[in-house]
Design a protein around this nucleic acid. Structure first.
Lengths: 294, 294
DNA sequence: TCGGTTTTCTGACTAAGGTCAGAGAATGTC
DNA sequence: GACATTCTCTGACCTTAGTCAGAAAACCGA
């Protein structure tokens, strides 16, 4: 990677994150410790389970407990056990807590305004566009693709979204149990593999490979969450799936798709897949593709 | 300011500065406290006076002293008095300190690489371009224009650079003591005012106003440091100078300029100044401008 | 030479942020 | 019903980061 590129990223890291980050902390942490302010914000208006907070903020359980005691003492938060599992507890904001959170929100707005104020409207537009790009691309860069068991809740979530989307976009609907299936045992090692893409710990995409002895491997259930589209994630996921198929011994891969998935079809065409005559009788498919793996 | 714009800035602040900032700190602070790491980096290969370090990093003098003792104990830094003024001391890196600093540098590179690695080269280019824009525009936004005494060192520095640039760009040279002058007493209240633009505490531009009773005010000595050009700073500075002239009672402002300052001339034309016949006999001027103030 | 200023250092102190080990209650699994 | 696991809490402890007041030395201007 060229030095100029790395230098720009380093300069950005130093100047922007340190300066704006420090400003941010200063604005938010004015009345109470930053940790508490962040926690208050993260609990949100609907409350949040402690274990989720712990995961999202990366806190030690003891530390989180202490922060919550402090917020409880200030009557900003109430912690209560959750129905169904008495071990799990949820933190909820009190009325005062919601007011405090609104004040944090307002300070965050003030900070944003103060950053923008000295700029001309033309410059503001450019800044916002550039911020949007940076945010999207850094998000894209932080996506991680992991092999996961097809019955893992994250995998199941993605599959449900995949089916729901097909049902919603296609007039004839979609039934995953009919035709060329991808049952858990078919996409779990050694028969195949299931991958989930995570963005900040959240599942935002999936895809599966079915290995087939002496026959083309099959790519199945490829899906990207709407909010994660446009990040080049489909391409990365596909690379991973093809790599998996190749590692499983395949020289050629197959996939079939519905005509309503126009973005997916465009992706396939642009990454070396060629349309071929139907190689199976999947009732919900309109296009069949093939690719030689290298 | 529209909500969408403020929201984007807030999202950027939260996601980018917190996430990348935390990563940054984590990478840099792996082996030693962050404060020490930053200090080590800031001392630089050529050493640095303590008072400068204190100002640049915004540290308490007691705290800085302690940090330096700790770095000295680790044999990474030597602090010695400076020739000429025995009160002032400079911190210099030892050989081990330079190695340590190089290691920090390397980690910073690694971080940049790891951010970029998952992206396609097309995405990388877009990211770097967007980072560059964000950095420039946030820099622009953080510039502060302050009224300063014309004999203040920062004012003198800007004036010297201004003269040097004119001397360098113009064949006939430039002598500020000839013709339409801007002597300290002429641009100091109540006769006039001198402004300096600061970027991160550094003087990056200047401009002066000479009030004249019942006559057009004069704009003088307008200069922007080369590295701060393209930030829309000229326009902001000019707004400030015009405001000052207006507040001083003028309804019209005058300025004259050399033909070699093509960017400046473009700025004048685009901000409502109109070229008029010579209104003085400044020997180094080629163009004379006038603007009605509102 | 004297008083004021600049620069650094030291000691005493504080808050924030965080880690670790273990306890205790609820729940799931065999 | 025994046992392992999950989730939260408590107490003890630590480092980092930072503040404040004052002392000591060097310097500057009159």
């Amino acid at each position: 990677m060229s030095d100029a590129i790395v230098d720009q990223v380093r300069r950005f890291n130093r100047i922007v994150t340190e300066r704006v980050g420090a400003l941010n902390d200063h604005f938010l942490g004015r009345e109470r410790p930053l940790g508490e302010a962040r926690l208050l914000w993260e609990i949100g208006l609907d409350g949040c389970e402690l274990r989720v907070l712990r995961a999202r903020l990366g806190l030690d359980s003891g530390y989180l407990s202490r922060l919550l005691r402090s917020l409880e003492a200030a009557r900003l938060v109430k912690v209560a056990p959750v129905d169904g599992d008495q071990r799990v507890r949820v933190a909820r904001l009190t009325a005062a807590g919601r007011r405090e959170r609104a004040a944090l929100d307002e300070r965050s707005d003030e900070l944003a305004q103060s950053l923008l104020a000295p700029l001309s409207s033309n410059q503001r537009e450019r800044l916002v566009a550039a911020m949007h790009d940076v945010e999207r691309l850094l998000s894209a860069a932080s996506v991680q693709i992991t092999a996961v068991d097809p019955e893992h809740p994250d995998a199941q979530y993605c599959l449900a979204e995949y089916v729901a989307e097909l049902n919603c976009r296609s007039e004839r609907g979609f039934d995953p149990s009919v035709g060329a299936t991808a049952l858990p045992h078919e996409v779990r090692p050694p028969a195949g593999e299931f991958f989930v893409a995570y963005l900040h710990g959240e599942a935002v995409g999936c895809g599966a490979v079915k290995h087939r002895a002496d026959a083309p491997a099959e790519i199945k259930r490829m899906w990207i969450a709407p909010r994660a589209r446009g990040l080049g994630l489909g391409r990365r996921l596909m690379e991973r799936l093809e790599g998996c198929a190749l590692a499983g011994g395949a020289r050629v891969a197959h996939l079939e798709t519905s005509a309503v998935l126009v973005e997916a079809i465009a992706l396939y065409r642009s990454t070396g897949w060629v349309e071929v005559p139907a190689f199976n009788d999947e009732p919900f498919a309109d296009h069949w593709f093939e690719k030689a793996l290298t």
